[in-house]
Amino acid sequence: MLKEDVDSLHPGRDFNRRDFVHTAVGSGFAAAVLPVMAQTVIKTDSQGLEVGEVMIAAGDFKLPAYRAQPAGAKNPPVILVISEIFGVHEHIADVARRFAKQGYLAIAPELFVRQGDATSYGETAKLIAEVINKVPDGQVMGDLDATVAWAKAQGGDTSRLAITGFCWGGRITWLYAAHNPGVKAGVAWYGRLVGQSVPLQPRFPIDVTAQLHAPVLGLYGGQDSGIPLDTVDKMKVALAQGSAAAKRSEFHVYAEAPHAFHADYRPSYRKEAAEDGWKRCLTWLKANGAG
C-alpha cells in the first residue's frame, strides 16, 4: 500500500466520478486529488512545442502517452516522465512541457491503463487495491522499453536517455535505471526504496543497486511519513556497495518537506523545495550525459 500518497491528500475526503474532468491523457486531474490547490498550480504553455496524446505500440497493445517536445527539434534528448499512482493527468503533462521547454522530447506513458483508469478513482485506497497493486513491474519495464523505441523512431536521441518519476514513478525510476543499459541518468522524486517482495513487484530499489546502469539522484522529504529517513540511509549503504553507476548516485533530502512536495496542485506542495529540486534535476541530467 502506498500510504505516503494517502497521507499527502486531504484527509477524510472521498470523491466520485462526477468530481473528475478528464477527456484525454494529460488533461484534467485525477478524482482522488480533487479539489486542486488552484492558487499554486503551475501552468506551462505549449508555445513553440509539439504536444498531445500519442499511441505507442507495446506488442499488440496500444499504449496511450502524453508527448511534449520542441517544435521542429532535431535529435532532442529523450526523457521518460513517470507519474504518481494517479496516472497521466494535467500536472504530469505540465512537467513534460517543462522538460520540452528545456529541449527534451518528454514522454509520459499511461502505465496503469491495462489494469484500469487510475484517474477515475475517487478513493485512493480503492485505487491502490484495484489497479496499482495489480500492475506487474515486468509489464512496466516492457512498456517503457516500447516507449523508448517509439521515441527513437520519432527522431529522439536515445543515446541521451533519461528517466524521472514521482512517488510510484520514483520507485520505477530506480528500477528502470537497473533494467535498461541505455539510460544515462535518472531522478527519483520520493520513490519508495524498500518494501515487501510480492510476485508482481518482486524487487525494490535497494535490491537492484548492483545492476544500476545509470546514476540516480534521489530527491526526498525529511517529513515524509511513508518513506522514513532510515530507508534512505539503508539505500546509501547499498549504493556504496553497488555498481559503478550506483556509487555515483546521490540523495538530497529537504528536511522540512513532506511527501509529494513537488506536486503543485496538492496541499503537500513546498515551493522552495520543488524549485530547488527542479534545478538539481536539470543539472544532474546534463552532468550525466542526458541533456
Rank of each mutant, 00 (worst) to 15 (best):
D5S: 13
D5W: 00
D5Q: 12
S8D: 08
S8P: 02
L9R: 02
P11K: 11
P11I: 07
D14W: 10
D14L: 14
R17F: 10
R18T: 13
D19Y: 12
V21T: 13
V21R: 14
S27D: 08
V33H: 00
M37Q: 15
M37W: 15
A38R: 15
Q39D: 15
V41S: 08
I42E: 15
K43E: 15
T44N: 12
T44Y: 03
D45Y: 09
S46D: 15
E50F: 06
G52H: 06
G52A: 06
E53V: 09
M55N: 11
M55H: 06
A57L: 09
A57C: 06
P64M: 13
R67V: 10
G72C: 08
G72Y: 03
P77R: 08
P77Q: 09
I79G: 04
L80F: 04
L80V: 05
I82C: 04
I82V: 12
V88F: 09
V88L: 07
V88H: 06
V88E: 03
H91G: 05
V95P: 11
R98T: 04
F99L: 10
L105E: 05
A108P: 01
L111R: 01
L111F: 12
L111E: 09
F112E: 01
V113G: 05
Q115S: 14
Q115W: 01
A118D: 09
A118Q: 08
S120P: 01
S120M: 13
A125K: 14
K126G: 12
I128Q: 05
I128L: 15
I128E: 10
V131R: 03
V131Q: 07
N133S: 15
V135I: 13
D143P: 01
D143I: 00
L144C: 11
A146Y: 02
T147N: 01
W150N: 01
Q154V: 05
Q154H: 12
G155S: 06
D157F: 09
T158W: 00
S159V: 09
I163A: 13
T164D: 02
F166Q: 02
C167I: 09
W168D: 03
G169W: 02
I172Q: 13
W174I: 06
L175N: 04
L175I: 13
L175D: 03
L175E: 02
P181L: 13
V183I: 14
K184L: 11
Y190C: 06
L193R: 05
G195H: 12
S197L: 11
S197W: 11
V198P: 00
Q201R: 14
P202T: 02
D207L: 03
V208G: 02
A210V: 12
L212R: 11
P215S: 08
L217T: 04
G221P: 04
G226H: 09
G226M: 04
P228E: 07
T231N: 07
V232G: 05
D233P: 01
A240Q: 07
Q241R: 14
Q241I: 12
G242L: 07
S243M: 06
A244N: 14
K247Q: 15
S249W: 03
F251S: 07
A255K: 14
E256A: 14
E256W: 13
A260I: 10
A260R: 09
H262R: 10
H262K: 05
Y265P: 04
E275P: 07
E275M: 12
K279R: 13
R280P: 00
C281A: 12
L285T: 06
L285G: 02
K286N: 10
K286P: 03
K286C: 07
A287W: 03
G289A: 03
